[in-house]
């Protein structure tokens, strides 16, 4: 129930921010569409702690800042490779996925795809296959720096679900 309320709150804030026209008719339409989205989300069974927008709230912005830095440096590297395509060596590597929850595994795979030079091909709970453009991009991922950042993001997010999953995967 807590998550339904927080979902309604976020959707209402989004509607008010994007709409910009404050008339009774539009408030009614907004309430109707929020009700529709909440009903569909409940039907899809996706309302829960993993989909809580505030799950990683304070740390998420620090992580995004770091990720933007990574994206910029990776882009500069790929841009150099575009200008001299002889230097590329596309190959597939496998890296371990140390995260415990599904959300942080998805975050890891998506962050890896978001930085140019590495694209996630397949992911299992333990490992993922990554297509790397050349050795420098592969090294950046093999150093596990991004995985450590997401472990940091995952830690002390203060919910019982995470610790429960941790004990499950540890045993």
């Amino acid at each position: 129930m807590r998550y339904v309320i927080s979902l309604i709150f976020v959707l209402a804030a989004l509607w008010l921010a994007v709409s910009g026209v404050y008339k009774p008719l539009l408030f009614g339409l907004g309430a109707g569409s929020i009700a529709l989205v909440v009903w569909l989300s409940l039907r899809m069974d996706v309302v829960g702690i993993e989909h809580n927008p505030g799950l990683y709230f304070p740390k998420l912005f620090a992580y995004w800042g770091w990720l933007v830095g990574q994206i910029i440096s990776a882009n500069i590297h790929v841009a150099k490779r575009v200008l001299s395509p002889k230097g590329i060596r596309p190959h597939i590597i496998e890296v371990p996925v140390p995260q415990h929850t599904a959300v942080s595994r998805v975050t890891y795979a998506n962050s890896c795809t978001l930085t140019p030079g590495t694209v996630t091909l397949d992911i299992t709970p333990e490992r993922m296959r990554v297509h790397a453009l050349d050795d420098v991009s592969a090294q950046g991922l093999m150093s596990q720096e991004m995985a450590q950042k997401i472990l940091w993001l995952e830690s002390q997010s203060g919910n019982p679900r995470v610790t429960q999953n941790q004990t499950e995967s540890a045993s």
Partner: peptide, 11 residues
Amino acid sequence: GSAQQASSTAH
């Protein structure tokens, strides 16, 4: 298609 991505346990 290869095995679907391991989904989380449903809440």
